[in-house]
C-alpha cells in the first residue's frame, strides 16, 4: 500500500531530521565577531528538511482517495506483486551478505558465490547461465581489478586468505 508506506516513510523522515536537529543544537557555541559556528548550516538544512517532511507527511495522511485507490491496486496485483517484493528482499539480502563476505572469504570466492545466488534471487533459472556466468565474470573482474589495476581487495581470513594469495 503506497499511501500507508508514504505515511510511514515521511514519519521516519520527521523523526530522523528531528533527532539530528537536536544533535545539531549541541554544536552551537560562541564564535568570533562575524563568525558563524559549526551549527548554523546544518541547522538550516535540518530545519528545512523537517519542515518539508512534515508537510509531505500531512499530505500523505490527508489523501484518503489515493489510499483507497492504492489499496484496490494492491489487491489486483496479488501474488505477482508479492513475489517481486520477495525478489527485491532476497536480492538485497544477497548483496548485503556479499559485502560482508568479501572481507571474510576474500573478493574472488565471495564474487564466485554471489553471482549465482543473486541471479537466482532475481528469478534466473537457466542452469547454463547459473554455472558459466560466475566463472566467466569472476575471472574477468579479477583480471581487470585485481591484476591489471591492483585494487587491494580484502583477501579474507585463515584458509580463505591463503586461497586468495594464490591469485593476488
Amino acid at each position: 500500500m503506497k499511501t500507508k508506506g508514504e505515511v510511514f516513510f515521511f514519519a521516519v523522515c520527521v523523526a530522523f531530521f528531528g533527532f539530528m536537529g537536536v544533535q545539531a543544537l549541541a554544536l552551537m557555541g560562541e564564535g568570533r565577531a562575524g563568525e558563524i559556528g559549526s551549527a548554523l548550516w546544518p541547522l538550516i538544512a535540518l530545519a528545512a528538511s523537517l519542515g518539508f517532511s512534515v508537510v509531505l507527511l500531512v499530505r500523505a495522511v490527508r489523501s484518503p482517495r489515493r489510499a483507497a485507490a492504492a489499496q484496490a491496486a494492491d489487491r489486483d496485483e496479488g501474488d505477482e506483486s508479492r513475489r517481486r517484493r520477495q525478489a527485491v528482499a532476497l536480492s538485497t539480502a544477497c548483496f548485503f551478505v556479499y559485502l560482508w563476505a568479501v572481507s571474510l572469504i576474500g573478493f574472488i570466492l565471495a564474487t564466485l558465490l554471489f553471482i549465482p545466488a543473486f541471479a537466482f534471487a532475481l528469478g534466473e533459472r537457466r542452469v547454463k547461465v547459473l554455472v558459466t556466468a560466475p566463472l566467466v565474470l569472476t575471472t574477468v573482474m579479477s583480471a581487470v581489478f585485481l591484476k591489471f589495476l591492483s585494487i587491494p581487495f580484502p583477501k579474507g581470513i585463515g584458509i580463505f586468505a591463503a586461497f586468495s594469495r594464490l591469485f593476488y
Binding site: L99, I115, I151, P152
Partner: peptide, 24 residues
C-alpha cells in the same frame, strides 16, 4: 542475461565504492 548484467553492475559498484579509499 539480465540477472548476470545486474550482478556485474553491483560488483562494479562495490569496486567503485571500495576503490576510493580501499575501505570496507
Amino acid at each position: 542475461p539480465y540477472s548476470v548484467f545486474s550482478a556485474a553492475i553491483l560488483i562494479l559498484c562495490v569496486v567503485g565504492a571500495f576503490g576510493i579509499n580501499n575501505s570496507v
